[in-house]
């Protein structure tokens, strides 16, 4: 993986928060899935969130664009507090891109239509211009020649790259990745990670839930370890992997790094 590039710009962080989560709790019925989460994300910061399944890591990033509703505490994204105000939620969602484990492309639309849907209807960009933007990002994820196909005709890796391009077309300020490579065949993981590394190099603010520890080491500014709905430990990747503090972190690392 591209270690030197990411390492090179890890120092660029300004002290300018884009996401502030304070004392946030969430329950699914009786189940306390997120407990007292406090997290500040700086502009251009790249955070990898890991942890065993059921630890609440996906739920945490889904709270940031309110695909899940939190019950206590506050989440402020780009200066807008997340409340029940649907207009605010839509504004935040337009500025926060999300990439899903199962891609969730729209199967009834062609690739280019998938990419232009948001810009046309949310950003109110004229169709012609939206298509130019779409082609620009498809070039970027190296899939422009598939523009007129339907998602069902593409491989998993290609679909996920389209999904990333679809988010980028909205010119997001933050990108959330929810296990973007977990549903992929092994030989397709690299092509998706490469796109994400490119994105990191350009200074995108990213929150990535993933088990790709190589990616975490080379790209992340900070690694968060979650277990039982809590952020157990957070540190720079070097410290996190070489020198874990918490027993649960050590156990988890020993399990995934074999």
């Amino acid at each position: 993986m591209n270690e030197k590039t990411a390492a090179a710009d890890k120092s660029q962080l300004s002290d300018d928060a884009i996401i502030e989560i304070t004392g946030m709790h969430k329950w699914f019925g009786e189940f306390h899935v997120l407990q007292d989460i406090n997290l500040v994300v700086q502009k251009k910061e790249r955070i990898v969130i890991c942890g065993p399944s059921g630890s609440g890591k996906s739920t945490l990033i889904r709270c940031i664009n309110r695909l899940e509703e939190h019950q206590r505490g506050s989440i402020v994204v780009d200066g807008i507090a997340l409340t029940n105000d649907i207009k605010n939620i839509e504004k935040i969602r337009a500025d926060v891109g999300m990439v899903f484990q199962h891609f969730n492309l729209f199967p009834h639309l062609t690739i280019v239509e998938n990419l232009t849907l948001g810009p046309i209807w949310v950003r109110k960009i004229p169709k012609k211009e939206a298509e130019e933007i779409a082609m620009y990002y498809l070039e970027k994820v190296q899939i422009a020649e598939q523009a007129q196909k339907f998602p069902g005709q593409l491989s998993g890796g290609q679909q996920q790259r389209v999904a990333i391009a679809r988010s980028l077309c909205m010119a997001p300020k933050v990108m959330l990745f929810d296990e973007p490579t977990s549903a992929l065949d092994p030989e397709m993981i690299k092509e998706v990670l490469d796109v994400m590394i490119d994105l990191a190099r350009e200074g995108m603010t990213m929150l990535v839930v993933t088990h790709e520890m190589g990616f975490a080491k080379s790209v992340a500014h900070r690694v968060l370890f979650m277990d039982y709905g809590q952020i157990v430990e957070q540190n720079t990747p070097e410290e996190f992997f070489d020198n874990p503090k918490h027993d649960r972190t050590k156990l988890f690392l020993s399990q995934i790094l074999h």
Binding site: R93, M98, N104, F106, L117
Partner: peptide
């Protein structure tokens, strides 16, 4: 996932239904 993908890009309820869910 279809609803989530549509909503996560900022489409409102009517747009989500009209452009993504109902056609399928």
């Amino acid at each position: 996932g279809q609803t989530e993908a549509a909503e996560s890009m900022g489409l409102n309820y009517y747009q989500t239904m009209r452009l993504v869910i109902l056609p399928q």
